[in-house]
């Protein structure tokens, strides 16, 4: 059971990262619900999606308190960090966070330089996969290797995979550090 929000700029692959997560979770027998802001909100430059993963029937699709926040830029972090439960997780994109952010003591914050790592592999659009790697390592939501295989399958099914995708994911696992 996890209540999750992914947030960032439009174009960072926020919604896709969410769809990968629900795809894999659903394959592992979980109930899932994904929803995003739509319409005019899409054009504001920010993107977010809410995800609920559960063994039970899912009620409201809009989580009230978060187990996990995945924030791909600083504004998204500030917008949602107050909603994270005590003992919950926040995964931040170190590449786009200022150095002076004070992280809360009661939330497990992990940082990974997702944008820089993805760019260094020439796969700039896969910063979201670096974040997913960091998230799996931090939260243990799913087995990291199983999720990696499933993530790779996801892109294979879509017919647009590149080896750099899995590599980005793995670097996310490797490079994520607890703040």
């Amino acid at each position: 059971m996890a209540d999750i929000i992914f947030a960032g700029f439009g174009g960072q692959g926020i919604l896709t990262a969410g769809k990968i997560l629900i795809d894999v979770a659903a394959q592992h027998g979980k109930n899932i619900c994904w929803t995003s802001s739509y319409g005019a909100a899409m054009r504001g430059g920010t993107a977010s999606c809410s995800i609920i993963i559960s063994d039970e029937e899912i009620g409201s699709p809009y989580p009230e308190k978060l187990d996990i926040l995945l924030a791909m830029n600083e504004p998204s972090y500030h917008k949602f960090i107050g909603d994270v439960k005590e003992g919950g997780y926040a995964i931040v994109n170190g590449s786009l966070m200022g150095g002076d952010v004070e992280y809360p003591a009661d939330v497990n914050v992990y940082s990974v330089d997702a944008t820089d790592i993805a760019n260094s592999l020439g796969n700039g659009r896969a910063a979201n996969l670096v974040m997913l790697g960091a998230m799996m390592k931090a939260t243990g939501l799913m087995d990291v290797d199983t999720f990696g295989t499933s993530l790779n399958d996801y892109f294979e099914k879509k017919g647009r995979n590149t080896p750099a995708n899995l590599e980005c994911y793995k670097l996310g696992i490797e490079k994520a550090v607890k703040k």
């Binding site: 769809k19 629900i22 659903a26 109930n31 899932i32 619900c33 994904w34 929803t35 995003s36 739509y38 899912i58 699709p61 809009y62």
Partner: peptide, 10 residues
């Protein structure tokens, strides 16, 4: 409604 229409589920 907009919520049911827009959400993804199994």
């Amino acid at each position: 409604d907009g919520a049911i229409s827009q959400m993804i589920e199994k």
